[in-house]
């Protein structure tokens, strides 16, 4: 912040001193990609923030029926969601290991950890689909109640972001198979890892948010002024 303020105070019309140059030029595309990723994560944050605000407001309407809090509600027992969380956590850990293996130029390590990342990510998506099916089978249809609607909507949006990440992940592997450059793979996986961690964080937040009971929502809404 201070750096930004300092930059904005520079008087460019005066003879130039050390304060204005040299400046930072990216020396490789990794830095540019890192900047782009930071902004992209900001965009995703805004999307989920806005969904959350609308959700919290909706929790206070007369027809909202939370998905946990009573024994017959689906997330009073959230073991499936815990299981899915562990899958995503494992995916996040294995992508870090893949990055480390790429740093160490270990082909075996890269292959094992990338396979583990792919496997745990697919398990997570599969687990989420299973939860959707269970909700449907129990009569918690998407249109039946706003809590259901938000559950499907938010977890669906999250899954969509994971799928987008998987596509980029596949591209990384494909590019690695072409040039076998560990250095490039490591820099790409570093960004992939950041994205996976971020989506893990979003998932844990959604997990907490969507499985709250009526009393929790009331407290949060009161705190937020809804």
């Amino acid at each position: 912040m201070m750096q930004i303020l300092k930059t904005l105070r520079i008087k460019p019309w005066l003879p130039q001193g050390q304060e204005t140059e040299p400046f930072s030029v990216a020396t490789n595309k990794e830095k540019a990609a890192s900047t782009a990723l930071k902004f992209f994560l900001a965009v995703i944050t805004v999307i989920f923030f806005l969904f959350t605000v609308t959700f919290l407001q909706r929790t206070q309407s007369y027809d909202f029926q939370a998905l946990s809090g009573e024994p017959w509600l689906p997330f009073s027992n959230a073991s499936m969601l815990w299981q899915n969380s562990i899958y995503l956590l494992m995916a996040s850990i294995s992508i870090i290991l893949a990055n480390k293996s790429a740093d160490l130029q270990s082909f075996k390590g890269v292959v094992i950890s990338l396979t583990a990342t792919a496997l745990f990510t697919v398990l997570f998506i599969g687990g989420q689909v299973q939860v959707w099916q269970q909700l449907n089978q129990s009569g918690f249809y998407i249109y039946a109640n706003p809590a259901n609607s938000y559950y499907f909507l938010l977890t669906g949006m999250h899954a969509l972001h994971i799928v987008a990440g998987v596509l980029v992940f596949i591209r990384c592997i494909w590019l690695f198979s072409l040039d076998l450059s560990y250095q490039t793979l490591a820099s790409r996986l570093k960004l992939c890892a950041r994205y996976w961690h971020f989506l893990l964080f979003i998932w844990l937040f959604l997990f907490f948010l969507l499985t709250g009971d009526a009393q929790t929502f009331k407290t949060i809404a009161l705190f937020c002024g809804f």
Partner: peptide
């Protein structure tokens, strides 16, 4: 990230 050398933000 891709400004030419000397192109500071305030320039």
């Amino acid at each position: 990230q891709a400004r030419a050398k000397g192109m500071t933000l305030m320039r």
